[in-house]
Design a protein around this nucleic acid. Sequence first.
RNA 1: GCGCCUUUAGCUCAGUCGGUAGAGCAUCGGACUUUUAAUCCGUUGGUCGAGGGUUCGAGCCCCUCAGGGCGCACCA
Length: 536
Amino acid sequence: MHGQKNSAQRRSSNYRLTLVSAESNTPDENEELDIPELTGSGLQAEKSRRLGQLDDMRAKGVNPYPYRFDRTHTLAEIRSSWGHLEAGTETDNEVAIAGRIMLKREQGKLIFGTVRDRSSDIQLFVSKAVIGDEGFADVASLDLGDWVGVYGNVMTTRKGELSIKVSRLELLSKAVRPLPNKWKGLTDTDTRFRQRYTDLIVNEDARRAFEVRHAVISSFRRSLAAKDFIEVETPVLHVEAGGAHARPFVTHHNSLDMQLYLRIALELHLKRLIVGGMERVYEIGRVFRNEGISTRHNPEFTMMELYQAFGDYSEVMAICEELIVQAARDAIGTTIVGIADPAGVVHTVDLAEPWRRATMMELIAEKTGVETHPSQPVDTLRALADKLGMRYDKRWGSGKMIEEIFEFTAESSLIRPTFVTGHPVEISPLARADRNDPFITERFELFVGARELANGYSELNDPVEQRLRFEEEQAAKDAGDAERGTVDEDYLRALEFGLPPTGGLGIGMDRVAMLLSGVSSIKEVILFPTLRPEAF
RNA sequence: GCGCCUUUAGCUCAGUCGGUAGAGCAUCGGACUUUUAAUCCGUUGGUCGAGGGUUCGAGCCCCUCAGGGCGCACCA
C-alpha cells in the first residue's frame, strides 16, 4: 500500500473536480477548485460544504474516515448501568461510545447533541470549558447524520437527562448528504423503499418492524432446534419448479447450456431428505414466484418449511400454532395483537387462545347455507357460483370450484386464526387423501386477518398415486394452465425408496412478521422490496 | 394488464378563479453555559416528474409518457 497518501490526495482532488464539472452550470477548468463557491443551500451546495469540511480536516492531518473506534459501552449498556442517576449528578466514570448524531442544540458555550447507536440513544453534553475552543468548534461543525466516537464522563443534567459530558470527540464518518426532516422524518413510500438506509436512519417504526422480523425468525429456529429439527439448505436453482402452483422465474446456466427455474417452494427437496432418513428437517429460505406485486405479495419472499417423519397433518398443525404463538412472545412480548380486517377495522385477538378448525365446506355452508362437496357434479357447483355472482373457468373441476367458492364467500371473514381443512384432492397434488373421505386431503391452511399464513398436510408417500397426480398436473399444464406442475421423475424415484408417514408445514415468514409488527404491507417487512428500477 | 389517486426546495407540506413560487425543518450568519423537535433575529435554496398542447399568460386546464400508492385481475 505504498503511496497511499498520495493516491488519497489525488482521489480527493479528482472528486472535487468531478463534482464541480459535472454539477456546476458553468464548468470552468481554470476556476480555483479548492474553494468552491458556497452559494445557496440546495443539495449540491450542501454536499460541497460538507466535502469542504473533509478537505479542511485532511489539511490538518486528520483522517475524517478513521479505521476503527473502540467503544467501552453500547448506549443501552450506559442506560442500564447509570439510568437511575439522580438529576444533577456528575460521575468520574469514563466511557467511550459511538453512534450517529441525530439532533444538535447549540446554546452559546454549550452544545447538546443526541447520539444514537443500534441499542439506544443518549445526550451529549459539550461544554466549551471542558473540551476547549478547538474541540468545541469541531463539535459545532458536526452535521446531523455524522458518525462519531465520544469519550467522556457519565452525568445527568439538572433536569435529569442522562448524558455524556464530552471530553473528546472523534469524527468516524462524515455524512455528505443531509438527513430528512428531523421531526416529520421520511414518509414518501417510494423513497422509503428505494433508500431503505434512509428509512432506517429516521423511522423508528421501520427499525422496529425489522427487529420483529428478526425476532420471529430466531424464535422459529430456537423452537425447532428444541424439537430436534435440523436446518438444511436446498437448491434455489431447480430443473423443474415444483411444490406449488405458481409461475416460476426462468434463468439459464451457461456451461450446462440449460434452462433453470428459481424455486417456487422448498417442498420436494426437503421430502427427499425425509426419504434419506433425516426425520426432522426444515429450511428458511427465499422462494420466487413470477406473479403480481401487492400489499401481500412480493416476487421473492421467505418461506419456512418443515417435514416431520412419522407425523401427520394434525401434528404439524399443532407445531404451526406453537411456533407462531412462541414467536409472538419472543418478538413482541405478548400474544395479544391487533388484526385489521379487509375493511381496515382492527380486532384485538389473543393468539394464545386455541385456533378454530373448520372445513372449507363448513365455511361455505355458513356463508351460503348450501352444502357442498367435491363429489358433487361440477354443474351443481357452477350453479351455486352463478347464484353467488362468481366468475369461474370452465376448465375447473369440482374440487377447484369448491376452493374458489370458499375464497369468494368465506376467506375475507377469517380474521382470527383459523385452520381451514378439507381441501379437495384436485387442488392438492402432493397431499395425502383423507383417511375417511377420498375426495379431500388431510390438509390445512392457516388464515389470519383474511391472509393465508401457512399450509400443511399429511404428505402423499405412495409413489404410484403420486405419479398419477403428477400426470394430472402435467395434463393441465399442457392444456394451457401455466401454474400447474410437471412429472418430477427424480422425486418419484425418491418416493420409490420409501417416504415414511410424514407431516409437512410451510409458513410465510413475511406474513408472520407483518402480523406481529402490525403493518399492512409486505414491503414494510422486506428490507429491499421489488420495485421498478429508479431512473437516475 | 385495467381503474382511481398522486409527483412542488435535501425532507415535510401549502399554493384560491389560469396572472409569473410559499412555509416549517435542514443549511448559512448572529445571540445564548442545562437544552430536549431548544429558542430568538437574519440568510440562502426551485428544470413545480418528463414531453407536447391550449392561452397574451400554465404548478393549476388538455394530451402522451414515467415513477409511486390503493383497488381489481393474477396469486392453491
